[in-house]
Amino acid sequence: MNSLLATVNKILTYSVVDGPGNRLVIFLQGCNFNCSTCHNPYTVGVCDHCGDCIPACHVDALAMVDGRVVFDPTACDQCDACLHICPISASPMVQQVSVADILDIARKNRPFLSGITVSGGEATLQLKFVIALFKAVKDDPALNGLTCFVDTNGHLGAQSWERLLTVTDGVMLDIKAFDPATHHALTGQDNAKTLKAAKIVRDAGKLYELRFLAIPGKTDTEREVAKLTDFALSLGSDVRVRLNAFQHHGVRGDALEWPKMTETGVNKIAEHLRKAGISEVITPALYL
């Protein structure tokens, strides 16, 4: 177990937006989707040690050692120039972290924590690690009061879900779009696995919330909202639906030309869902 390492982009000991309560959040590097609307695109790729970022670093925090990019966090001034120059949306600042490392952080912050959430990137790409971590949390008497959550795009096969769900308390599952063509255009992947995953997780009683990103003209259409409503109802009217609003913060590329989702627009969708009988619809507390 201890030899198992995860590639981690970031660890937060304070987060109120990644599940119930205050959570320790581990952002795992690498994603199987390539969403144009991603608000942390530097978590998508996995470093291939091309070295393009090294000259971009103005404080010499990056170096090539034995063919690998090595990062010195003490020299870094967090200017993020390396992230902007990376050709594959990766980050040279990732850390290799063991289960024991995370348990240490969790113990130190235990009184402040309601639970642990693995996010990303796509957390389930490092499935073995996630399962090992959650299992270790459950086995630790000081930590087993913490709930273990996964924030995921759901692009994972049924058998893997079965393994993961045995050690998971809750899943926040993102549906990017219902129309297959729209989904493909937005993410580069099909949505069949995701939709299936929602049912698997819901059947296991572990779907904490279904998340849906409203993008003007793309996923806020009548057709998409109708499909979202039907899908949510098929899971059960008590399914918790969180509507997120597309904003420009963190976004790169063409999507910056797209309009932001307005509060009025989000409220219209929420109203539609509520009228259809979905009891718990959450809308953003903040529009940037």
Partner: peptide, 21 residues
């Protein structure tokens, strides 16, 4: 920040953490 309005349980946890610390 105001995102906590959707998650008041976090305030409870922060409070307990602070007092326990």
């Amino acid at each position: 920040d105001e995102t906590i309005k959707n998650n008041p349980e976090a305030m409870l946890q922060l409070c307990k953490g602070a007092l326990e610390s």
